[in-house]
């Protein structure tokens, strides 16, 4: 049995106005991958490809050892999928949905389901049409979690939630992570949620994977540096500096290669490092996206 929960190799999907290109992505079992991208980046398309709902044009996709889309049924028995585009039947109750899913999945944990009903402050006898948006998201998540899936694919699960509901959902996902065998792919454009949960981070923009690394490594190598230059006449040209601001002797720059070699290069270039600040994941995301788009234009 492979240690990878899923792998995408050279996955390409062409649409008239959008291309997902050469996607290389995988995740070891037991890890959480935060899949970040702006709207229209291709996150939902990627998840749909993994569920066999959209067929890729090129490349290879395996989920829990099953090639997709050929063995999507076998894979889906062990995968839980919830997305912002997923709606339960409005005229049916949550209890009906629970009974329906329980009949399909032998792994359904009834005691855990009842516990989640309480923890999420839901009522099983209430019709879905009477639930708020936050309650609907939690109900859909309950139906997925109570199946005890090996792999959770969550497409923007916290989008549109109020702060309380968001905290409950994130709290439950954190609890799920106590099980080391459970793997999660969590797509979002909310970097704070991703930062809280993830072991690994992937940035997707305009159908291209532009970063894929461990969260700690991400946070360690990205820094904002304030520099003082001996002379402000020449443009500062040091490899590894991105988004350089300030034209005079005081310069602020962002780097994705913070470390001893960059310090040495900066000293050689006649600058003195005044301060070094860590960046939030959101700042890293925005900076990386800007760089990628500049590279694409160039």
């Amino acid at each position: 049995m492979t240690d990878l929960a899923f792998s995408l190799r050279g996955v390409t999907k062409h649409y008239p106005h959008f291309d997902l290109r050469d996607l290389e992505l995988d995740l070891i079992r037991g890890q959480v991958l935060g899949f970040i991208g702006p709207n229209g980046a291709g996150k939902s398309t990627t998840l749909r490809i993994m569920m066999g709902l959209v067929h890729h044009d090129e490349g290879r996709v395996e989920v829990l050892g099953h090639p997709i889309p050929a063995e999507q049924i076998q894979a889906k028995k062990r995968v839980g999928f919830a997305g912002e585009d997923l709606r339960l039947y409005s005229h049916a109750t949550l209890a009906w949905h629970m009974a329906f899913v329980r009949r399909i999945f032998p792994s359904w944990d009834d005691a855990y389901a009842r516990e989640l009903v309480k923890r999420f402050d839901l009522r099983a006898d209430q019709k879905v049409k009477g639930l708020s948006h936050g309650q609907r998201v939690k109900a859909a998540l309950l139906l997925v979690l109570a199946r005890r899936p090996e792999l959770l694919l969550l497409d923007e699960p916290t989008t549109g939630l109020d702060p309380v509901a968001r905290r409950e959902v994130l709290g439950e996902l954190t609890a799920v992570l106590a099980d080391e065998e459970r793997t999660i792919l969590f797509s979002s454009h909310n970097t704070r949620d991703v930062e809280q949960l993830s072991d690994r981070i992937a940035f997707l923009d305009r159908g291209r994977l532009i970063e894929f690394d461990d969260k700690e490594s991400f946070l360690d190598r990205w820094r904002r540096i304030r520099l003082q230059r001996s002379s402000g006449d020449e443009p500062l040209d040091v490899p590894g500096l991105l988004d350089v601001e300030g034209g005079g002797r005081l310069v602020t720059a962002i780097t994705d290669r913070w470390g001893g070699s960059l310090r040495r290069d900066l000293t050689r270039a006649g600058t003195t490092v005044q301060t070094v600040e860590p960046l939030t994941l959101e700042e890293i995301f925005v900076a990386r996206l800007a760089t990628h788009r500049e590279e694409a234009v160039a």
Partner: peptide, 17 residues
Amino acid sequence: KEKNLAFVMSLPVSVMG
């Protein structure tokens, strides 16, 4: 139209099923 299809297709069923 009411996006229940995503729920159905998240279950172990193919398009032909």
